[in-house]
């Protein structure tokens, strides 16, 4: 397997880890870390699959990943502000108490 293959597979592992962290961690800061790790995994698959080929690396995935990184930092910044504001109003940096209620609210 080529070197790029290692990274593409590591990307898959990161995606799985990110999904797991997002599902299991309650702290919102940790959930945002998980989203970032999930994103890094997707980026690794995107570039790793293109790999250094005979024709040289494919610049299009590189550009897409740079775009993705900027989008990720924007989303993280917004997420952090939301988390802080939510903590100020509710006292806790988690969502667990107001888990989706399907029934009528008391």
């Amino acid at each position: 397997m080529s070197a790029a293959g290692f990274y593409a597979l590591a990307g898959v592992a990161l995606v799985v880890l990110g999904l797991y962290g997002l599902a299991v961690q309650a702290h919102l800061l940790r959930k945002l870390l998980a989203v970032n790790i999930l994103g890094s995994g997707v980026f690794l698959v995107l570039v790793g699959l293109g790999g250094p080929a005979d024709a040289g690396p494919d610049p299009v995935p590189h550009a897409m990943v740079i775009t993705g990184i900027v989008v990720a930092v924007s989303a993280t910044a917004l997420g952090l502000v939301l988390m802080l504001k939510l903590t100020t109003t509710s006292g806790r940096p988690t969502l667990e108490d107001d888990a989706p209620r399907e029934g009528p609210e008391a």
């Binding site: 800061l29 570039v47 790793g48 250094p52 590189h62 990943v65 930092v73 993280t76 952090l80």
Partner: peptide, 25 residues
Amino acid sequence: LEAPDVALAEAAIGAGLTGALLLAA
């Protein structure tokens, strides 16, 4: 992976500024 442009962006934004934002938060 022969992606030096991405490496620079990752170090500066992905690790550096995202890290700073996280620590400040």
